[in-house]
Simulated assay, not measured.
Amino acid sequence: MTSGLYTPLREDDLEICILDISPAEGFNLLIACSFRNVSLNSNSYARYIALSYTWGDADHMSYISVDGAKCIILPNLASTLRQIRGSKERISL
């Protein structure tokens, strides 16, 4: 069962949640993403980039699309996602 944007993780399968960023040709285009759960028990491990960030200034907001829903993020995260987003391939965080 899905609650909001997240699908609950199955603890018995050691799942983690991955955010996939869709490619875009233009730097300033809307950041489109989707969530997926991945099992750490699987023989085929997902490749992803680990990202750590601070929340920053809450007076300024940016937006991304996650699974079709408009989500608010802060500018430093938006800038980081734009920097690592590719133009040809999906990037996983």
Rank of each mutant, 00 (worst) to 15 (best):
T2D: 15
L5P: 03
L5S: 01
Y6H: 06
Y6R: 08
Y6I: 10
T7W: 03
L9Y: 02
R10C: 13
D13W: 09
D13L: 10
I16A: 05
I16R: 12
C17N: 08
I18R: 04
I18V: 15
L19N: 02
I21E: 09
I21F: 09
I21T: 04
I21C: 10
P23S: 00
P23I: 00
E25D: 11
G26L: 06
F27G: 05
F27H: 08
F27W: 06
N28D: 13
A32E: 10
A32C: 11
A32V: 13
C33S: 02
S34L: 06
S34Q: 08
R36Q: 11
N37H: 03
S39D: 03
S39F: 05
S39T: 13
S42Y: 05
N43M: 11
N43R: 13
N43F: 14
S44I: 14
S44M: 12
S44A: 12
A46Q: 11
R47I: 14
Y48P: 01
S52I: 04
T54F: 12
G56I: 00
A58C: 10
H60G: 02
Y63W: 07
D67L: 03
D67V: 04
K70D: 13
L74P: 08
L77Q: 00
S79T: 06
L81Y: 02
R82V: 00
Q83N: 10
I84D: 01
R85D: 02
R85G: 03
R85Q: 02
E89K: 14
I91D: 02
S92H: 11
S92M: 11
